[in-house]
């Protein structure tokens, strides 16, 4: 008899969105509340791993055609470039700045360059976690 995991797959498609939303919340909360790039990245990775568990690897790869090793590189490059940007602007390496900007709908929001640094951390964490999981799962 063929096993049928329709319940798992249906629940997953719903849950993944909730997890990803929570990950985005954690990522943006990092400056004032508990959260940040590292835990946000782990959350995103956990959502993706749930997808890999519920569906097969080929299907997910069709939807998300990322090379996670390159994702790791992009993340590291982004974090490093925010530091190098400070050098270009004649400030000490890794100097960060922020600005309050008025958006039409959302009101006043604080935009900080440290968010870009954290975004780099997030991408590196997602890339590293999924590289580890997928390399272990591969048959060698």
């Amino acid at each position: 008899m063929k096993t049928n995991d329709v319940i798992l797959q249906t629940v997953t498609t719903v849950t993944v969105f909730i997890i990803l939303t929570f990950a985005a919340y954690l990522f943006f909360a990092g400056h004032h509340d508990p959260g940040g790039g590292f835990i946000g990245g782990l959350m995103i990775a956990s959502a993706l791993i749930l997808l890999y568990l519920a569906f097969d690897i080929e299907l997910i790869h069709k939807g998300l055609p990322f090379d996670y090793k390159l994702l790791m590189g992009v993340g590291m490059a982004l974090s490093l470039l925010t530091g190098i940007g400070a050098i270009v602007l004649q400030h000490p390496f890794l100097s960060h700045t922020f600005e309050y900007v008025d958006f039409p709908f959302f009101g006043e929001i604080e935009l900080a360059t440290s968010v870009l640094f954290e975004l780099g951390v997030t991408l590196a964490v997602v890339g590293a976690t999924l590289t580890i999981i997928l390399s272990i799962s591969e048959d060698v």
Partner: peptide, 13 residues
């Protein structure tokens, strides 16, 4: 510090 680090990141690609 940053020259080898940046080069290392670049070489991943």
């Amino acid at each position: 510090l940053i020259i080898p680090l940046f080069t290392g990141v670049l070489l991943i690609f």
